[in-house]
Design a protein around this nucleic acid. Structure first.
Lengths: 115, 115
DNA sequence: TTGATGATTCTATAATCATGGAAATATGGA
DNA sequence: TCCATATTTCCATGATTATAGAATCATCAA
């Protein structure tokens, strides 16, 4: 995962409403939830939710699919997986610290050791 | 880890200069680096760096200790560990998804299963 | 004390982000 | 077609964040 993409994802999650949306979607994975359901559960105005969904979508954290008049949003687990991988690979001690070493290899996509 | 703290940490990392500072400090853990060394390595003006260091510090991601005229900044690994724990616990699928299940138990600080 | 250096704070400015009402754009059913 | 509903876009407003020069504060050496 590239630096810039990590920042985009971090920024997408670093906002109360968006984090709440994402967590809610994770609870309802993998089907996801319609925008109207999200708005109702979180008490967000349509326009506000749409703005945040666009941010999450742009960051690659959620996907959407249309079903009739509804648009279902679902979390993209791979994005979160890559973020966690980025953090453990680049932002944790590589020398026996607490957060890095136990990281499992999920996909072969992370760099060896250097920062 | 509380929701609000997670957002604070995510926001602290979701900025190019700050992420660069943090990664640089991780490379130099556990001693850390003096502010002047960080500024030089990253090409940041003093005032700008100081602003970002304060953000990181406020988020609990870095600690500082004075040594003569120098102030050394070092990464706080526990904060990153807790963030990764928060993400895997609350933002990953709990039902066999890719990012959650292999998470080791580092400290007994995370909630059982619910979100 | 004085001077040099490291670091932070003050301050102003610019840029970005969040909010939400209102209007516009689908979609499907009658 | 016409209507109701789901969702997004438009737009204005307010709030927050990033930047960095200049001033200030802190520490040490002579």
């Amino acid at each position: 995962m590239q630096n810039r993409q990590a920042i985009t994802i971090l920024a997408a999650l670093a906002q109360e409403s968006r984090l709440a949306v994402y967590r809610l979607l994770v609870e309802h994975a993998p089907e996801g939830l319609a925008a109207s359901a999200i708005a109702e559960k979180l008490g967000l105005p349509n326009a506000t939710l749409s703005f945040h969904l666009k941010e999450l979508s742009h960051a690659g954290l959620v996907s959407s699919r249309q079903s009739g008049r509804f648009i279902y949003y679902a979390p993209v687990m791979e994005a979160m997986d890559e973020l966690v991988g980025y953090l453990t690979d680049h932002c944790c001690s590589q020398s026996g610290g607490t957060c890095a070493p136990a990281r499992r290899v999920t996909a072969g996509k992370r760099r060896p050791a250097s920062a």
